[in-house]
Design a protein around this nucleic acid. Structure first.
Length: 223
DNA sequence: ACCCAGGGTCATA
DNA sequence: TATGACCATGGG
């Protein structure tokens, strides 16, 4: 019972504390992909505003994004920050998306190929690619982010400096390959990280320690 | 005024 | 390969 919990036990604790998260917010696979780019290092609230602007200007479609003037596109993306960068990244992504033949064609590809394709796009890094694979293409890929590294290094399960791929394979090799599990798990980690396990102060001083299942001082009692 | 947010790229050593 | 600068808005 002492020492480190298993990843599955962590999942069960998170699920018990927060319940199902119903990710990813978005009405279509393409909207999810757009959201994945726009939320890079950005609060989701601001992404919602930018997506609302795109909808208002009838630009939430790959053809419309490519047809828009870059300046106009950037202006609509202003609320989510890095708007010039993200306008370019969105265009890069949409050019790829249409040139490859759209959703139906892409959905026919195996996960490894799709992941390689996504990573080749300028502006799509590992986390954004995995968001798209898991939440838009519904592939069993474990998405890693800063919250994941922070939580699991605090739990003593991985080194604090572990790289993205190593952390991803830590989960994918430990857990059963389950798209629904991976979906819920990443969402729960984000929820926990946002609301409870803040970067500063640390978990055990966050003021919500009573409801934080992963308080550093409590973990030996819990497991 | 400072820190943070559902990252990624690029230049430099 | 590994840092550091840079991108930028909005909320606590």
């Amino acid at each position: 019972m002492n020492g480190a919990p298993t990843p599955l036990a962590v999942y069960q604790t998170l699920f018990a504390a927060h319940g199902p998260q119903h990710w990813w917010p978005g009405d279509s696979p393409f909207e999810i992909m757009v959201g994945a780019v726009l939320t890079q290092n950005t609060a989701w609230r601001n992404v919602e505003r930018a997506i609302a602007k795109l909808i208002r200007h009838r630009t939430l479609a790959p053809e419309a994004i490519l047809a828009a003037r870059q300046e106009a596109l950037a202006e609509w993306l202003r609320p989510c920050g890095y708007f010039n960068v993200k306008a370019r990244r969105l265009v890069n992504f949409c050019r790829w998306y249409l040139q490859e033949g759209g959703l139906t064609v892409l959905a026919g590809r195996d996960t490894a190929t799709l992941r390689m394709n996504l990573l080749a796009i300028n502006g799509i890094g590992p986390e954004t690619a995995d968001d798209i694979l898991l939440y838009a293409f519904e592939r069993p890929v474990f998405v890693v982010d800063a919250y994941t590294r922070r939580l699991f290094s605090r739990l003593g399960l991985v080194p604090e400096t572990i790289g993205y791929e190593d952390l991803r394979s830590f989960f994918e090799s430990t857990l059963e390959t389950d798209r629904v599990l991976f979906n819920e798990y990443h969402a729960l980690i984000v929820r926990h990280g946002k609301e409870i396990c803040r970067p500063r102060p640390l978990c055990d001083r966050c003021g919500l320690a009573a409801v934080c299942a992963f308080d550093a001082e409590q973990r030996d009692q819990r497991w």
